[in-house]
């Protein structure tokens, strides 16, 4: 998997949206908590951390390992935007 070029928060959102949709086999609305909805399990949480590190070239620190940070497209987007310092793209 290659590192994504992240120019805006919408880039991040698109990447997160695409990864969650392909991994879960269905599009998910941006705010949906995929764990609470029963679409994903604990193994997938670890997978999402690896995805974020791999795709966006960031390191998820131990104290950032909160499942809430990876539970939805919105959450992943906010987390990565915070790590990379990328602002809004509109």
């Amino acid at each position: 998997m290659s590192v994504a070029v992240v120019a805006s928060i919408e880039d991040i959102r698109e990447q997160a949206r695409a990864y969650l949709a392909s991994s879960l086999g269905q599009p998910v609305s941006d705010h949906l908590d995929v764990f609470a909805a029963g679409l994903a399990n604990s193994l997938f949480a670890a997978q999402l951390v690896l995805f974020v590190e791999d795709r966006f070239a960031v390191t998820v620190e131990d104290d950032e390992l909160e499942i809430a940070s990876f539970a939805s497209v919105d959450a992943v987007t906010a987390f990565v935007a915070g790590k990379t310092g990328v602002g809004g793209g509109h």
Partner: peptide, 17 residues
């Protein structure tokens, strides 16, 4: 080892993998 309350699922899954 790791943050308090972070062992499940992250630490457990990493080790079990």
């Amino acid at each position: 080892v790791g943050g308090q309350g972070r062992a499940h699922p992250f630490v457990v899954t990493h080790a079990l993998t």
